[in-house]
């Protein structure tokens, strides 16, 4: 009974909706691309980055992936362009562009 949300959309017949509109899965929101909302875009300068990771916790959307203690480039599918990370970076490794 686990839910595959790719089978559910606003035109689905009632029989295809889940009981009580529960979702039997976690983290399905990743399939919704909030990156389309963005008006300003952060640009990541790998060379300036010292991997201090002060940018990673300030993101409201978790769009700065961290693996093995190192940040990677932005998740542009979901970044909304708020600019908090640019201000959090002590090394000028993030620049907001419109």
């Amino acid at each position: 009974m686990r839910t595959d949300i790719s089978n559910i959309n606003e035109q689905s017949p009632c029989e295809d909706l889940t009981e009580g509109l529960m979702i039997f899965a976690g983290g399905t929101s990743k399939q919704f691309k909030t990156g389309e909302w963005r008006v300003a875009t952060p640009v990541f300068d790998k060379d300036k980055c010292k991997q201090c990771l002060l940018c990673a916790p300030v993101c409201p959307d978790g769009c700065i992936p961290v693996h093995d203690g190192r940040r990677e480039d932005f998740d542009m599918d979901h970044c909304k362009g708020c600019g908090i990370c640019e201000k959090a970076c002590p090394f000028g490794a993030i620049t907001m562009t419109s």
Binding site: S29, T34, P60, C63, H78
Partner: peptide
């Protein structure tokens, strides 16, 4: 997860 609809910032 990302993809929630809270406002930017």
């Amino acid at each position: 997860s990302a993809g929630h609809r809270m406002c930017a910032g």
